[in-house]
Simulated assay, not measured.
Amino acid sequence: MIEYRNGYKMPKIGLGTFRMTDAEQTYDIILKAIETGYRHFDTAQMYGNEEVVGKAIKDSGIKRKDVFITTKLQGHHSPLITRELILESMKKLQVEYLDQLLIHWPNHDNEINVQTWKVFEELYNEGLVKVIGVSNFTRYQLEMLIKDISIPPMSNQVEMHPALSQEPLRAYCEDKGIKITSYGPLMRGLILEEPYYSGLNEIAIKHNSTVGAIAIAWGLSQGVMMIPKTSTDKRLAENLSAKDIKLSNDEITKINAMNTGRRLYSDPSNNIYGKYIK
């Protein structure tokens, strides 16, 4: 578990549900993930699958206190609509509170980010959300936001993998007490290609593991929460096994050296997803 600065705890590994659009398949993989040992599920309004994620968790019979649910607000809106959309997400997920709520993408106008964040603060103070944070915020965007709000973000979910180690951002967030979660840790499959595969596979062989598990273990070893996505039973267990892999400092350094600053997802400074929708 990783502990936020308010004392709330989150499992180190979760299941990402980005692009899980087939309801039946998503339902089945959530149930299988719970059976395998997953206790954190990451969804978003943008994914369009909150309802099926909530139903699967509910139908599994797992106690609410034993599962951690993250969702993200799509776009930016008036305070009233923002609150309504978040309450609607809670209804879809069939929960009385959210473990974690994130701004999915920053707006290019900091005043709009602040307006959205103030609704997050209200929901947090009301106990409807246990952890409030952001996603895809750069250091500059975080600095702009923090200077105008009461409760600094507790987390920042960003693209992070061997080709994009995010070391400067991670150092900044650590100094500010902001926990980092990595999405896309398997690089959309590019970890199976050069110049990444050989180095990762060499480490994987030493640990009797796979390159995917090693990439996840690399993040975990640095205090980063990882939410790999998969739709296969085998990979569920394989990814979860990363929590038991202990990488040496030399191995971590070797993977850090693979960083080229390569993004495989949208650039936060030029994203089209953080629009203000009236």
Rank of each mutant, 00 (worst) to 15 (best):
residue 118 K to L: 11
residue 191 I to K: 03
residue 78 S to D: 13
residue 29 I to L: 02
residue 43 T to D: 08
residue 103 I to P: 01
residue 13 I to E: 00
residue 251 E to L: 10
residue 22 D to R: 04
residue 131 V to P: 01
residue 4 Y to P: 02
residue 168 P to A: 15
residue 96 E to W: 01
residue 46 M to E: 05
residue 245 I to W: 03
residue 52 V to W: 00
residue 96 E to V: 00
residue 248 S to I: 08
residue 30 I to A: 02
residue 98 L to G: 05
residue 31 L to E: 03
residue 95 V to R: 02
residue 99 D to A: 12
residue 250 D to K: 13
residue 140 Y to K: 15
residue 117 W to F: 13
residue 234 K to A: 10
residue 275 K to V: 13
residue 104 H to Q: 09
residue 181 T to D: 07
residue 229 K to M: 07
residue 174 E to A: 11
residue 20 M to K: 06
residue 53 V to D: 08
residue 180 I to D: 05
residue 22 D to L: 10
residue 19 R to M: 15
residue 43 T to H: 04
residue 262 R to E: 14
residue 24 E to P: 04
residue 58 K to P: 09
residue 83 R to S: 08
residue 220 L to G: 00
residue 264 L to M: 10
residue 35 E to N: 15
residue 232 T to F: 02
residue 89 S to A: 10
residue 223 G to H: 10
residue 229 K to R: 14
residue 201 N to P: 06
residue 206 K to V: 12
residue 238 E to A: 05
residue 276 Y to K: 15
residue 27 Y to D: 03
residue 142 L to N: 01
residue 87 L to T: 14
residue 185 P to R: 00
residue 268 P to Q: 13
residue 187 M to P: 08
residue 263 R to L: 15
residue 78 S to C: 12
residue 259 N to V: 11
residue 31 L to C: 01
residue 144 M to C: 13
residue 80 L to H: 12
residue 181 T to L: 07
residue 172 Y to M: 03
residue 100 Q to A: 07
residue 133 G to P: 03
residue 112 I to A: 07
residue 237 A to L: 02
residue 215 A to M: 03
residue 236 L to E: 06
residue 184 G to W: 08
residue 35 E to P: 06
residue 220 L to R: 00
residue 80 L to G: 05
residue 1 M to Y: 10
residue 61 G to W: 02
residue 91 K to T: 13
residue 69 I to M: 13
residue 63 K to Q: 08
residue 50 E to Q: 11
residue 162 P to M: 05
residue 271 N to G: 11
residue 108 H to T: 02
residue 163 A to L: 12
residue 189 G to H: 06
residue 141 Q to G: 09
residue 213 A to S: 15
residue 100 Q to F: 04
residue 247 L to P: 02
residue 174 E to T: 14
residue 278 K to L: 11
residue 149 I to D: 08
residue 42 D to C: 03
residue 131 V to G: 03
residue 207 H to C: 03
residue 55 K to M: 10
residue 219 G to F: 00
residue 216 I to W: 00
residue 117 W to Y: 15
residue 50 E to N: 11
residue 263 R to H: 13
residue 182 S to V: 00
residue 166 Q to H: 09
residue 134 V to Q: 08
residue 93 L to K: 05
residue 255 I to P: 03
residue 90 M to Q: 07
residue 31 L to S: 04
residue 119 V to L: 10
residue 210 T to Q: 09
residue 256 N to T: 09
residue 233 D to P: 03
residue 78 S to M: 09
residue 46 M to K: 09
residue 143 E to S: 10
residue 35 E to I: 10
residue 110 N to I: 14
residue 22 D to G: 06
residue 57 I to G: 03
residue 170 R to H: 14
residue 229 K to W: 04
residue 128 L to K: 11
residue 175 D to T: 15
residue 55 K to G: 01
residue 120 F to R: 06
residue 87 L to H: 13
residue 55 K to C: 02
residue 27 Y to E: 02
residue 211 V to P: 08
residue 225 M to D: 01
residue 119 V to S: 06
residue 46 M to Q: 08
